[in-house]
Nucleic acid binder design. Structure first.
Length: 426
RNA sequence: GGAGGGAUGGCCGAGUGGACGAAGGCGGCGGUCUUGAAAACCGCUGUGGCCUAGCGCCACCGAGGGUUCGAAUCCCUCUCCCUCCGCCA
């Protein structure tokens, strides 16, 4: 959520920033109109309430019954007017809130301006694509042949875009989760969190998924509860409606969760394999920081994610997302992509973003710079560290051998009971 | 799922519909005293909003409605927590 005070003060700058991400800036004029109406009504309302408070106190002390009755009658009328105004103020508030919740975050000035993903910029690359002396095959062939990914039975159980991991495949995923959590907690300074996988509606509003992206979420109507599309949602809301002390910052959390996405918007895209599915696992990094440090932290978090890619010895690149391709809640984002030689594409295994105070405003997360000082909104940052199915794809396709077996990356072997090669189960 | 009890400031805990943004205590901050510290004593100690910017006004006692000139206090609905019983990974 943008700061209404800032919109009042510099509407033109805000509009220009929105336009740079391809958003219609006219919403700002509508917000300002409602805001002005709201302020007018509020002033009138508060004057009447002040009068009623004052006179009501007098009535309590009054002896003369006639004057008392007269005053009560007067205040009855004032009360009716107050009720009317309260109604109008509430309506204006609801409308202003609705508009504010629909406006995306503003890009950071350092972000490249561009209309769409074609203007994203590769800022770093690591590793060379491996030379194969055979034709590398995609994971959707490799996995079933090894008996570690079962697409048919996934569909049988739950429908399209679901799959079953089996044997060493399931084990590999579990190893990756444990390994990533261990690296982040032991070496990168994060505290491990195990959150609920379902959350209340207000959590999704706080983190920015609602009201705009309900389409992409699973919702249990009976209990009015939502499956998390990412651990970012519960992690953001851990400190909803809290005032943190400055010396607690930065707070660094890492959480493994399953993630659930309906992918209605992407019908027909990436239908093969496990690149885009309704349920996947992810290890998520999350930080609450001061405004002064958030951009430095953004770079650190990219490094934390890249560190995992490097240890896995998989070629990857860091991409800076341009204004037109930014997510709703985000001021700046880097994606990290691993090369997948089987399907022949760069796979987004991580997206690391600074939301600045956008989520903090929605979820009302503040900190006190020093004892006695006024609370300020924190900055929040999130980053995958990493998304599992796509890392699995990259491992299978990069480490495949001519005979169809897959070498287990060395760093994972301690988490795989020493297993060195995944070969067809007998 | 059944029965009962509860929700007040950072925490504990008072609060007959009118002087209550809220007693008292704890904690925290500042001061006096002290070589220093502790103790004692004194003072301060919530958040948000409005424009007229005042040592102003408004709102907030789990949430939302209602009664009333006036609600922390009375009524209704909801949420959450606790206790007992049942079921149960």
């Amino acid at each position: 959520m943008l700061d209404i005070t800032r919109i009042r003060k510099e509407p033109e700058a805000v509009k220009a920033a929105l336009a740079s991400r391809g958003e219609d800036p006219s919403v700002i004029d509508r917000v300002l109109a409602v805001d002005e109406r709201w302020r007018g009504l509020l002033t009138e309302l508060e004057e009447l309430r002040a009068e009623r408070n004052r006179v009501s106190k007098e009535i309590g002390r009054m002896k003369d019954p006639a004057e008392r009755e007269a005053r009560i009658a007067e205040m009855r009328a004032v009360g009716r007017r107050i009720a009317e105004l309260e109604d109008q103020v509430r309506q204006a508030e609801v409308e202003r809130e609705r508009l504010l919740l629909s406006i995306p975050n503003l890009p950071h000035p350092s972000v490249t301006v561009g209309p769409d993903e074609s203007h994203n910029r590769v800022v770093r690359k690591w590793g060379e694509p491996r030379e194969f002396d055979f034709e590398p095959i995609p994971h959707w062939d490799l996995g079933p042949e090894l008996g570690i990914i079962d697409f048919e039975r996934g569909v049988k159980l739950s429908g399209s875009r679901f799959y079953v991991l089996r044997g060493a495949g399931a084990r590999l995923q579990r190893a990756l989760i444990a390994w990533m959590l261990d690296v982040h907690t032991r070496e990168h300074g994060y505290t491990e969190i195990y959150p609920p996988f379902v959350v209340k509606e207000e959590c999704l509003v706080g983190a920015g998924q609602l009201p705009k992206f309900a389409d992409n979420l699973y919702h249990d109507v009976e209990d009015d509860i939502w499956l998390v599309p990412t651990a970012e949602v519960p992690l953001t809301n851990l400190h909803r409606d809290e005032i943190l002390s400055a010396d607690a910052l930065p707070l660094r959390y890492v959480a493994y969760t399953a993630c659930f996405r309906r992918e209605k918007m992407s019908a027909g895209r990436d239908v093969r394999g496990i690149k885009r599915v309704h349920q996947f696992d992810k290890v998520e990094m999350y930080q609450f920081t001061t405004p002064e440090t958030s951009y430095q932290v953004l770079e650190e978090m990219v490094e934390h994610a890249v560190d995992l890619c490097r240890r896995l010895q998989i070629p990857h690149r860091v991409v800076e997302i341009c204004t037109g391709d930014l997510g709703f809640t985000v001021a700046k984002t880097y994606d990290i992509e691993m090369w997948a030689p089987g399907c022949g594409e760069w796979l987004e295994v991580s997206s690391v973003s600074n939301c600045e105070d956008f989520q903090a405003r929605r979820a009302n997360i503040r900190y006190r710079p020093e004892p006695g000082a006024k609370p300020r909104f924190v900055h929040t940052l999130n980053g995958s560290g990493l998304a599992l199915p796509r890392v699995m794809i990259a491992i299978l396709e990069n480490y495949q051998q001519a005979d169809g077996s897959v070498v287990v990356p060395e760093v994972l072997r301690p988490w795989m009971g020493g297993l060195e090669i995944i070969a067809t189960a007998t």
